[in-house]
């Protein structure tokens, strides 16, 4: 449909620029750099998608494939937060129960003992729930991109 328009890159440059501007404290980006970022983004998708597909055989590319590749590839470390591992509701409840218990104990002791549970809290909170008994959270809900 948008094939009619002539352009050097696929993504709308205005959009790319908006996203770029929300990233850092640069004042301005040259047209050339925006074109390059737009193209790099396209290349990035073209790289990521086949990698994920190759990781699993089958006729469908699913969230899980992407999640596995992202978590297994050091280069994609920056994506870990937006592609969290799925956990089951049972696991989620266990984690929440453990946290609650931890909190109570802390309140009771009234000391600040930060141990292992604080590690897991970061990723767990953002994780979506189960494959089976709960409506899967959409990636929109999972991710928080600034």
């Amino acid at each position: 449909m948008e094939e009619k328009k002539s352009r050097s890159t696929v993504f709308p440059l205005g959009k790319i620029n908006t996203i770029m501007k929300s990233s850092s404290d640069h004042e301005h980006a040259t047209k050339e750099s925006i074109v390059l970022v737009a193209k790099a983004t396209e290349l990035f998708i073209q790289k990521l998608a086949p990698e994920c597909y190759k990781a699993k055989n089958g006729n469908k590319l699913d969230y899980d494939h992407i999640m596995e590749v992202v978590h297994a590839t050091p280069k994609y470390k920056f994506l870990k937060d937006i592609v969290p591992k799925k956990i089951t509701v049972l696991e989620f409840k266990k984690i929440m129960a453990r946290k609650e218990e931890e909190r109570r104990r802390k309140e009771a002791e009234n000391t600040s003992s930060d141990d292992d549970t604080s590690d897991s809290s970061g990723s767990d909170e953002s994780s979506s729930a189960s494959e089976e008994d709960v409506a899967p959270a959409s990636p929109e809900q999972i991710s928080d991109i600034r």
């Binding site: 790319i16 996203i19 770029m20 990233s23 970022v37 990035f44 998708i45 937006i82 991109i145």
Partner: peptide, 9 residues
């Protein structure tokens, strides 16, 4: 989403 984060990154 990953692509957007890639742009930011």
């Amino acid at each position: 989403k990953a692509a957007v984060v890639f742009i930011l990154y």
